[in-house]
Design a binder for these strands. Structure first.
Length: 647
RNA sequence: GCCGAUGUAGCUCAGAGGUAGAGCGUUUCCUUGGUAAGGAAGAGGUCACGGGUUCAAUUCCCGUCAUUGGCUCCA
C-alpha cells in the first residue's frame, strides 16, 4: 500500500500501482469526469499512469492552467493525426500547448497550406476526436525511438531525440498516430468537443532564422462548444477594439506610404489626446522633481560609439547622414540617454544636488525590421516619455522606489489597475551580449530585486531579457478584456555613467560616479495610446477625449444658439463640434453615438427660450435639461473625479 | 529580414480574361425635424506600381512596394 497526500493535506492509502483517475473516482464522480491530468510530486502525470510510491497528488481540471495545457497539447496530437491522414509524408517539428491553444510545426515538403484548408483539417480532427481515441504512453529506448522516426523519415524528431537521454524517452499514441512526447495527455479524445484552427504562419525550426522554415498551424479547442463560442467572441471583441481600426475611424493618426513605413502621423484629434496625456505626465513629473529638457533629433556618430550603442546596433539602424563638406556623420537619435548624459556632464554637481532627474518627451527613430511593424505599437519613429535619473549609489534603492510609485500612480490614474511586473536580468551564459563589469551588473540586479520586493510587486524573473547596458523592471498591464501589454520600464545602469565619465563631488571633496536610472512609464506615446484605445475601445475617459461633446441643433434656426453654447464651453477648455447637417435629430443622435462622443447636447426652441441645454450621455443616458453653467460644472467635476491624484 | 495572406471609390467590401459595382460617406436640392439611419439627384476609380503571357489583363504569371497573420528582432 502507498500513501497519497492531497493538496488539502488529507491522505489516502491506496494499493501500489493505482492511478490518479481511480483516486479521483474515489473522491467524487464529478471530479473524475472533469479531471484532465495530474501531478505526482510536482511532475505532471497521466491519469491512467500507475503510481508506485508514497506521493503528493494534484488533480487538474479545465479550470487549471495545467489542465488546459494538457487538453490543448492532446488536441495538437489529434491535429497531427489528421494532418498525417490528409497529407501523407508530412514531417513534424514540435507541437506544444501555448497560452491560448496550441500549434504544431510541420514540414509539408514544399507544399503550402492556407486557412482555406482548415475546414477539412478541422472536420478530420472532429471525426478523430469523436472516435474516443485513447492516448497511450509508452517508454522507449533511444535506439527504438531513432529507428521509428528513421523509418518514418522525420528528421526533426530525430534531431529532438538526439538531445534526450536514453531512459526518459516516451512515445504517446492515439489512433494511428505515434509521437515523441513527454506528456501528459488527457485520457480520451472524446473530451475534445470543440475545435477551431486559427491561423497558419511560418516559423523557423528551433526558432533559428538560419534554419528551415516550417509551417505552423495554430488552433484552440474546448470541452464545450459554448466555450469556443465565447472565445471566438473575445477574438471578435479584440478585433473591434483594434487601435488601427479605431484610430482610422476616430481620425486619431494615419500612415502614408510616401512618408514611409512605420512613421505615424498624429491627426488633430489624436494630437489633442496625446497632448493631454503629455500634460498630465509633465505635471506629475514636475511634482516628483523632474527637470524638463529638449535635445536634438540627431547626434554625432562619436556619441554612440562612446555609449556603446554603435557597436551594438550601428549596422542594424538607420545609416548615418553626413555633412556635405566635412563628412561628419550623424545618426538619427535612437534613444535619449547619451544626450542626457552630456547634459549632466556639462555642470559640476555636488552630492547634495543628487538625484538629478532629466526628463524629455524625446522622439527617436529606430530601424525596425519591416515584418515587425504593427500599427502604433511597433513603429520606426516614436516619442518616449523618457527620463534619466543620476543618483548617488546610496540613493539608488529609494529613487528606484520613487519611480515605481510614479509609474503606479500614472497607471492608476489612467484606469490600468491590473498589472504584473517582470524583472529582466542578463543571460549569464552569454555575457558577451552585455557591456560592463560583473560587479556593476550584480549591484544593479540586486537593487531592482530589492526595490520590487520592498514594493511587494507581483514579479517574474526572466534571464536574458535585460538591456545590453543593464537590468530592467518592466510593467505589463491587463486591459479591459484581459489582454496583457508591456508598457513602462525602469532600468538601472552603472555602465553609461562610466562610459561618459560622469562624476559628482562627494562630501570629502573627491569625485564619485553616479548611477543612472532610465525610465519611461508609458514606454512610448505611440504604444501607450494604442493600448489605451484598445483598453477603452475608443471611449476615452472624459479628460482625455479629444472632444467632450457634440451639439445637435433641432433645426437651422438654432445654429446661433448652438454657437453661443460652444463659445461658452470653449472658455473652459471644453470642446466639441456642432452638427450643422440638415438631418433629423434621430439621425444626428445616432451618428453622435457611433462616433463615441462623451456628451450630446441638444438645443431647440425650448432651450433657446429658457436659456438651457438638454444633455444626453454617450450610451443613451438622458440627463435632462440644465443651465450651460451647470453642464460646465458637471464636466469639470467628472474630470476631477477621473484623475486620481495621490495627494 | 523570412514564411503565408491581402491590395478595387474617402471608408467597408463584392466582382469577372472583353477597360467596373454595392453600402456608408461626400456634394446639391427638397424636408425644419425633439433622443440610434427622412427623400431625390450628382460627383468620385490608370482596379497599388513595373514587367510578361494574350487579339484583349484590373482579372493569369513574375517582380517591386505597402498592409496583414506569424517567426526572428526590439537600445
Amino acid at each position: 500500500m502507498i500513501k497519497i497526500t492531497l493538496p488539502d493535506g488529507s491522505t489516502k492509502t491506496v494499493s501500489k500501482g493505482t492511478t490518479a483517475i481511480e483516486i479521483a473516482k474515489s473522491i467524487s464522480e464529478g471530479l473524475a469526469r472533469n479531471v484532465l491530468c495530474a501531478s505526482i510530486n510536482g511532475e505532471t502525470w497521466d491519469l491512467n499512469r500507475s503510481i508506485q510510491q508514497d506521493s503528493s497528488l494534484k488533480l487538474y481540471t479545465w479550470n487549471d492552467k495545467e489542465g488546459k495545457k494538457c487538453f490543448w497539447h492532446s488536441t495538437a496530437h489529434i491535429m497531427a493525426e489528421a494532418l498525417e491522414y490528409l497529407y501523407p509524408g508530412v514531417k513534424f517539428g514540435i507541437g506544444p500547448a501555448i497560452e491560448n491553444g496550441f500549434y504544431y510545426d510541420i514540414d509539408l515538403n514544399g507544399k503550402t497550406l492556407s486557412s482555406e484548408d482548415f475546414t477539412k483539417i478541422e472536420e478530420k480532427m472532429k471525426e478523430l476526436s469523436s472516435k474516443k481515441l485513447i492516448f497511450e504512453r509508452k517508454k522507449v529506448s533511444k535506439k527504438e525511438a531513432f529507428n521509428y522516426f528513421k523509418t518514418k523519415g522525420d528528421e526533426y524528431k530525430i534531431e529532438l531525440i538526439q538531445d534526450l537521454n536514453d531512459g526518459d524517452i516516451t512515445f504517446y499514441s492515439q489512433g494511428n498516430f505515434i509521437d515523441l512526447c513527454k506528456g501528459p495527455h488527457i485520457q480520451s479524445s472524446e473530451k475534445i468537443k470543440a475545435i477551431k484552427l486559427l491561423n497558419v504562419a511560418g516559423a523557423y525550426w528551433k526558432g533559428d532564422e538560419k534554419r528551415k522554415q516550417l509551417t505552423r498551424i495554430y488552433g484552440i479547442s474546448f470541452p464545450k462548444q459554448k466555450e469556443l463560442k465565447n472565445y471566438l467572441n473575445l477574438l471578435q471583441e479584440a478585433k473591434k477594439r483594434d487601435h488601427r481600426k479605431i484610430g482610422k475611424e476616430m481620425e486619431l493618426f494615419t500612415f502614408s506610404q510616401r512618408v514611409g513605413q512605420g512613421l505615424p502621423m498624429w491627426l488633430p484629434k489624436g494630437t489633442r489626446l496625446r497632448e493631454k496625456l503629455e500634460k498630465f505626465l509633465k505635471e506629475a513629473q514636475e511634482d516628483a522633481g523632474y527637470l524638463p529638457v529638449i535635445t536634438p533629433h540627431i547626434g554625432n556618430k562619436q556619441l554612440y560609439i562612446q555609449s556603446g550603442h554603435y557597436d551594438k546596433y550601428g549596422e542594424d539602424s538607420f545609416q548615418p547622414i553626413k555633412t556635405p563638406n566635412e563628412g561628419e556623420e550623424f545618426f538619427l537619435k535612437p534613444m535619449n540617454c547619451p544626450h542626457h548624459c552630456e547634459i549632466f556632464a556639462q555642470k559640476q554637481y555636488s552630492y547634495k544636488d543628487l538625484p538629478v532627474r532629466i526628463a524629455e518627451f524625446g522622439t527617436v527613430y529606430r530601424y525596425e525590421q519591416s515584418g515587425e511593424l504593427h500599427g502604433l505599437t511597433r513603429v520606426r519613429g516614436f516619442t518616449q516619455d523618457d527620463a534619466h535619473i543620476f543618483a548617488r549609489p546610496d540613493q539608488l534603492k529609494e529613487e528606484f522606489i520613487n519611480v515605481i510609485d510614479l509609474v503606479l500612480f500614472i497607471f492608476n490614474a489612467l484606469g490600468f489597475t491590473k498589472f504584473k511586473t517582470q524583472i529582466s536580468l542578463r543571460d549569464k551564459e552569454k555575457k558577451e551580449k552585455y557591456i560592463g563589469s560583473d560587479e556593476n551588473w550584480k549591484k544593479a540586479e540586486e537593487a531592482i530585486i530589492e526595490a520590487a520586493n520592498e514594493k511587494k510587486l507581483d514579479t517574474v524573473i526572466e534571464y536574458g531579457e535585460a538591456a545590453f547596458y543593464g537590468p530592467k523592471l518592466d510593467f505589463m498591464v491587463k486591459d479591459a478584456i484581459g489582454r496583457e501589454w508591456q508598457l513602462g520600464t525602469i532600468q538601472v545602469d552603472y555602465n553609461l555613467p562610466e562610459r561618459f565619465n560622469l562624476e559628482y563631488v562627494g562630501s570629502d571633496n573627491k569625485k564619485y560616479r553616479p548611477v543612472m536610472i532610465h525610465r519611461a512609464p508609458f514606454g512610448s506615446m505611440e504604444r501607450f495610446v494604442a493600448v489605451l484605445i484598445e483598453h477603452c475601445s475608443g471611449n476615452f475617459p472624459l479628460w482625455l477625449a479629444p472632444e467632450q461633446y457634440i451639439i445637435l441643433p433641432i433645426s437651422e434656426k438654432f445654429h446661433d444658439y448652438a454657437e453661443k453654447v460652444s463659445r461658452f464651453l470653449k472658455k473652459y477648455d471644453i470642446c466639441g463640434p456642432i452638427d450643422y447637417r440638415a438631418e433629423t435629430t434621430g439621425r444626428k443622435i445616432r451618428d453622435a453615438e457611433v462616433s463615441k462622443l462623451p456628451y450630446i447636447i441638444i438645443v431647440g426652441e425650448k432651450e433657446v427660450k429658457e436659456n438651457i441645454i438638454t444633455v444626453r450621455k454617450h450610451g443613451g443616458i438622458d440627463l435632462g435639461s440644465m443651465k450651460i453653467n451647470e453642464f460646465k460644472d458637471l464636466i469639470q467635476e467628472e474630470i476631477k473625479s477621473l484623475i486620481k491624484f495621490n495627494n
